[in-house]
Write a protein that binds this DNA or RNA. Structure first.
Lengths: 243, 243
DNA sequence: AAGTGGTCTAGACCACGTT
DNA sequence: ACGTGGTCTAGACCACTTT
């Protein structure tokens, strides 16, 4: 564990303990460097981490200001995978495949997955539950390569992500997300147990591997209130959480 | 403009021009330092900026990989202010105050704005339009100090943010956002011209000054499709845009 | 005027990937 | 074995805030 991270953690603890209350100033870089017995650059890197997490604000010429108690920031996988999000919130995810099939790629598939016209994609419609209650309908389109693996995934698999990692060594490293609202269609309403036209939060998602190649894209529709997307935003940081 | 930012911009341009195609590797830090005639640390800072913006991926031991074409990432103010978002998207924002009044602070106000029980807050209900079309209902609660200024703001003011900056020198520096979905209430439906129960995207927002003091909080309700929140997320970066 | 963070330099050693 | 990025050091000068 790098020294600068230890220092950042130590400062987080001090802030949580009330040594540096919200709104007050931290000691200067030079003072902290003495206190921790490291070079100024190392303290600087620690402070950079805290600024990036939205814990501190930084203005040239003035000491750094304490913004607030450190909040738990979600990991990349918690933000991408329904099951990992649920587990990390102390809920029990489950799911079932409603429908799965191979189709010729649509123009939208070709754009999102960067595949050739005429290639096949594997479409899966899943109903997702939290503690047995239906909360989300997921329509995912996989590239042919990934579909080969996914089609052998058990229908009641709670986490396709974990299954893919274990079975095929597939690791996601980046994702693009879009959030909007829509009205429940007939199929959505039937699966989720809402009336047709009920408000849903839509989550469109494209996931990529380490080299930036798209592996899947999906449209998820959540019952209103089941998912809240949270962003802490300043000119120097964007912290994401969801609950 | 710092040198490291110039270097980052230059690399962005090179990537856009196809000199470093998506999926390929960038030259090493040392090579780039020679090319730009700066110290390695300066190149490092430039590359850090690009990694933070999701343009590059970085793994120890391997050269940095080009993830994708540089995307325009929204500024903090574009993300916080309806008018600035609209303008930066080439749209014309307008707005009108439907109702404004002083009220005793509710428990929710006291929590969000960190004010004492018994203090007053200034509530404003606005209808917001894009190119004359109603798209959003905004219910904002201002602290007493800020309310003193806002109550003199013209009713048809397009950007309260700009007005506050010019008139009272108020600058926002951080904001917390929450997104979810809800059904249009009677008042929402009347103002937005939708049916009651129509799906809306809700945006709850609390804005802070440079010292972390809350200045206002708001609940904005958008017609479905009028606003899309976009997040590009990996373990090393969270890029936000909205359209 | 003094202090602070922002930028930049010029080195060093190490863990890890690539070959 | 070698090259690469990650970490760390020890300085320097400047723009800006605070007093």
């Amino acid at each position: 564990m790098p020294r600068y991270h230890e220092i950042a953690e130590s400062l987080r603890t001090s802030i949580a303990a009330g040594r540096y209350p919200r709104g007050t100033s931290l000691p200067s870089e030079r003072e902290l460097a003495q206190e921790f017995d490291v070079a100024a650059g190392t303290v600087r890197q620690a402070l950079g981490e805290l600024v990036g997490d939205g814990v501190l604000a930084s203005r040239r010429g003035a000491r750094r200001t304490v913004i607030g108690l450190p909040k738990r920031t979600g990991t990349f996988e918690e933000f991408r995978s329904f099951a990992q999000w649920a587990w990390s919130n102390g809920r029990t995810p489950s799911g079932e495949v409603v429908c799965a099939r191979w189709c010729p790629s649509s123009p939208l598939d070709q754009e999102k997955l960067r595949v050739e016209p005429g290639s096949q994609v594997y479409q899966v419609l899943r109903l997702r539950r939290l503690d047995e209650r239906p909360v989300m309908v997921e329509r995912t389109h996989y590239t042919a390569t990934l579909g080969q693996h996914v089609q052998h995934c058990p229908d009641d698999c709670a986490s396709v992500t974990s299954w893919l990692a274990g079975e095929a060594g597939v690791l996601f490293s980046r994702a693009e997300h879009q959030f909007s609202a829509c009205a429940a269609g007939t199929e959505d309403a039937r699966l989720l147990g809402t009336r047709r036209g009920a408000p849903l939060l839509t989550h469109r998602r494209t996931s990529f591997d380490g080299k930036g190649t798209p592996l899947e894209w999906s449209e998820d529709r959540y019952i209103a209130g089941a998912l809240t997307v949270m962003v802490d935003n300043s000119s120097s940081s964007n912290v994401l959480r969801w609950g």
